[in-house]
């Protein structure tokens, strides 16, 4: 189990990443900003899952469980949206 210091560092990183989203949309061209914001959101989620939900300490199969359901629903969203383009 990690120290409070590490958790605090992660927390600060999360706050900074949150602000970046607002900044990206101001300064980048729209679709670049969208991409950057998504990268930032996935990074944040990964930090939360890896440290706060301590996936790093669990058997890898738990991470697979999460990734499988994520992949399934991304497939649904992407294929459905593609089907109407």
């Amino acid at each position: 189990m990690a120290s409070i210091k590490l958790y605090f560092a992660v927390y600060v990183a999360l706050l900074i990443l949150a602000v970046t989203k607002v900044i990206f949309i101001e300064f980048f061209e729209y679709w670049t900003a969208v991409g950057a914001i998504l990268v930032s959101a996935f990074t944040k989620s990964a930090l939360i899952a890896y440290y706060f939900q301590h996936l790093r300490e669990e058997p890898r199969a738990i991470s697979w469980l999460v990734l499988i359901s994520l992949a399934a629903v991304l497939l649904l969203a992407a294929a459905a949206t593609y089907s109407i383009t």
């Binding site: 669990e58 058997p59 890898r60 199969a61 738990i62 469980l65 999460v66 499988i68 359901s69 994520l70 399934a72 629903v73 991304l74 649904l76 969203a77 459905a80 949206t81």
Partner: peptide
């Protein structure tokens, strides 16, 4: 195997969260 060492309650919570990922993901989708 491959879930050695995970207490059943925690494992159950993760399975629940996996289904919740799909629910939220489908809303976002």
């Amino acid at each position: 195997w491959p879930f050695d060492g995970v207490h059943k309650n925690k494992f159950g919570m993760w399975v629940f969260l996996a289904s919740d990922i799909v629910i939220f993901g489908a809303f976002i989708g």
